[in-house]
Simulated scan of single mutants.
Amino acid sequence: MIQVKAPAKLNLSLRILAKRDDGFHALDTLMIRLPELADVLTISEAEAFVFTCSDPTVPGDESNLVVKAVRAWEAASGRKAECSIHLEKHVPHGAGLGGGSSDAATALAVVNDLHGSLLPVERLIEIAGTFGSDIPFFLMPGAVRCTGRGEILEPAPSPPALPVLLLKPAFGVATPDAYKRWKDSLPLPGVRYDAQVFPWGELVNDLERPVFEKHRLLAEVKEWLLNRPEVAGALMSGSGSTMFAVLHDLTDARTVADEARMELDPGLWSWAGMTDGEE
């Protein structure tokens, strides 16, 4: 039996360039990991593949990304997976943190290793891109710039390790809906969408416009964070609904989170920690 962590991700930048002929959107996004916020996969040898999850709201059938990853590996390798996978969820779903994509990528890599590394990592990345645009990112180390529909990967200079606070309301955001609304969406008055520039890069997300238009609370959270003296920058990750703040000092995280719950939404989920990066 082995246990492997599947870390969450943040999009430090996400630019939408155009709608593609295949229905996807052309992207340019820079993604990094949150190594301390992770789901845990427990893999054991078994006569046939079995999948279970600690969260009863996560589907356990063929629609689950972990199951899809294993089936894709079986099809590509010509082998049946002889293992059981139990997924312990810690990363919220519908959050823009890539939890399901990370689970799938981790399962794909571990099942391949468990069966003698039948496929090279380049083939795993290719397979991953067939059932999820974010999934290939999790098969590469460090910061990655993703283009195309997200499946074209290029290693990028890693920003320094950043102290961040995550805030997420009880609701999630459906990624397809966010992209569908992008073209015709309008900015909300008084909300800052421009890139926030730092020595290590910039914070910007073109999906904020359509998501904020539908979910005004998220716009309110961003503006509230940007007005806090403890916050250097704030942005929505991916298609939401998680908002994150880059802090001047991680020790301020609890104060900011507590006051956000008092002033904005008592049901806000929060997490604080360091991003992956150069120390």
Rank of each mutant, 00 (worst) to 15 (best):
63 S>W: 03
185 S>N: 11
63 S>F: 07
178 A>W: 01
121 V>W: 01
12 L>F: 01
39 D>T: 09
203 L>A: 04
82 E>L: 12
188 L>G: 10
237 S>N: 10
27 L>M: 07
176 P>E: 09
154 E>C: 11
214 K>G: 07
36 E>V: 06
31 M>S: 10
193 Y>S: 12
111 V>F: 10
76 A>L: 05
56 P>I: 07
189 P>F: 06
142 G>S: 13
63 S>Q: 09
125 I>H: 05
167 L>T: 05
250 L>T: 13
35 P>Y: 00
67 V>C: 14
264 L>K: 02
96 G>I: 01
70 V>G: 12
45 E>V: 08
208 E>A: 04
267 G>Q: 13
26 A>R: 09
263 E>L: 14
175 T>H: 08
110 V>P: 01
143 A>S: 14
45 E>R: 14
40 V>A: 08
271 W>Q: 11
66 V>E: 11
266 P>A: 05
100 G>R: 14
271 W>D: 13
93 H>R: 06
134 D>G: 02
196 Q>F: 12
64 N>Y: 03
12 L>I: 01
222 K>I: 07
233 G>I: 11
99 G>D: 04
57 T>F: 06
165 L>I: 05
277 G>T: 13
128 A>Q: 08
261 R>A: 02
116 G>Q: 04
63 S>D: 12
66 V>Q: 03
52 T>G: 00
1 M>V: 15
188 L>Q: 14
126 E>P: 00
73 W>Y: 14
275 T>N: 10
87 L>S: 11
134 D>S: 05
132 G>K: 03
90 H>S: 15
37 L>H: 02
159 P>G: 01
204 V>E: 00
194 D>T: 11
133 S>A: 15
94 G>I: 04
14 L>P: 01
32 I>K: 10
273 G>H: 12
50 V>M: 03
256 V>K: 08
189 P>Y: 06
263 E>D: 13
34 L>K: 03
101 S>C: 11
234 A>Y: 01
145 R>F: 01
126 E>H: 00
157 P>H: 02
61 D>N: 11
116 G>M: 03
207 L>F: 07
192 R>V: 13
182 W>V: 07
117 S>I: 02
44 S>M: 00
142 G>V: 15
13 S>N: 09
